[in-house]
Design a protein around this nucleic acid. Structure first.
Lengths: 215, 215
DNA sequence: CACCAGATGTTTACTTTATCAACATACACC
DNA sequence: GGTGTATGTTGATAAAGTAAACATCTGGTG
């Protein structure tokens, strides 16, 4: 009861366009996104997207924003997953970051592409990262107050932490270290090594690994 | 004696095109590079670049390769600058990396854009990073043998180191942390903090800061 | 229920670009 | 000097961004 005629109005074109954009990026990278291709995939005319986005960048921006929302959600969920253990909560949110980035390379790539920012210094972008950093720095402060994290400027510590995590997932996503890892390490074990190194680096003791033995 | 007529043959068009490309990237980002614009800046017709590069990506690739050469040179020079002090040499080469990336954001951005790789999995690109990683890992091994760097898989330690450095310079270059730093810290001091944290993180003691008091 | 105002799509048209093919020129070597 | 090859130029085609004018649907309003 919903397929007789193609329907002049799509119904939810905006979302459909974002999804198509993601598909294109996954297949051919962010540079391959074209308004026309995205429109084609959504089954509308090449100019229809302009009813929802002023230009190509705005479409990209919508993808970025959706990505940050999902990342935020994942981290927020993880942050509260470990009860009262502050360090475990922090580690869990960090793990969520790793996992989001590695499981959603498409989102991650656009989110941190830098190209968008350089082209149109969209405030929303810098805002997103700002709030993200604030959260990390607040975490560091809290853990310092609890004596879990070493003394030192929390902003600088936060920058150090984010640098490592972001650097690692970027290198992995861009296929820059696969040649070192493939056949020698599981992606998981490398991720865990880096994560523990981060914890160690801020002077906290990594949580005792759980007994689970995943496949 | 070298400017009478425009000269049908440019003389060194290939280099000129690479330079023009760099200029465009600096001004408007990598996505703004067009064969035609680059040709315009070099003062040649829109099809002339095709005598030197098969397509747009190959031009980009040439920029990337030149960038990696310069980075390699800078690091190699630094690596031998501190005499027999192995750790100091390592730190110096790391510092050279930071400096190259932060002083040449244009090069660095294209070099690690990831877009190129995803579009055309050019072997030369993965090769470059491969040799780069090999060097780091060799350094780690040597320092471990000297008891300067903590035990642990040198490949994983190398990945950790490169992740942090690359992550930091990427965030800086993409303007993602300027809002945290501006007015509070000098870029230099943040860089030094991260660099020391890396040294600390691999279990080495940071070299005693020199007496210099730069402006 | 008929009708109007927006919102959402479509068509057309113009400009810029990548890229190819055909043609032109200059330099190197004989 | 003559010629082949590398290096440039011109012209043409197809695809994309984007704007403008036109079409159609949807949701109130009377």
């Amino acid at each position: 009861m919903a397929s007789a005629k193609p329907a002049y109005h799509h119904g939810n074109l905006r979302e459909a366009l974002i999804e198509s954009a993601l598909a294109v990026i996954t297949e051919d990278g962010p540079a391959a996104i074209t308004i026309r291709e995205v429109a084609r995939r959504a089954g509308v005319s090449h100019a229809a997207p302009y009813r929802h986005f002023n230009d190509r960048d705005e479409l990209l921006l919508a993808v970025v924003e959706q990505g940050f929302e999902r990342l935020d959600d994942a981290m927020a969920a993880a942050r509260d997953s470990q009860g009262d253990d502050e360090l475990a909560n922090f580690a869990a949110s960090g793990e969520a970051y790793f996992d989001f980035a590695l499981d959603n390379p498409t989102y991650y790539r656009v989110m941190f592409s830098g190209d968008l920012l350089s082209r149109s210094g969209h405030e929303s972008l810098s805002y997103t990262t700002t709030s993200f950093f604030r959260q990390i720095i607040a975490d560091v402060k809290r853990l310092q107050a609890l004596g879990i994290v070493r003394d030192g400027d929390p902003t600088l510590l936060g920058i150090h932490i984010v640098s490592t995590v972001h650097g690692y997932v970027s290198l992995v996503n861009d296929g820059r270290i696969s040649h070192l890892v493939d056949g020698h390490y599981s992606q998981r074990s490398v991720r865990d090594f880096v994560m523990e190194a981060v914890i160690l680096g801020i002077g906290a003791i990594p949580p005792i690994p759980s007994e689970e033995t995943p496949s």
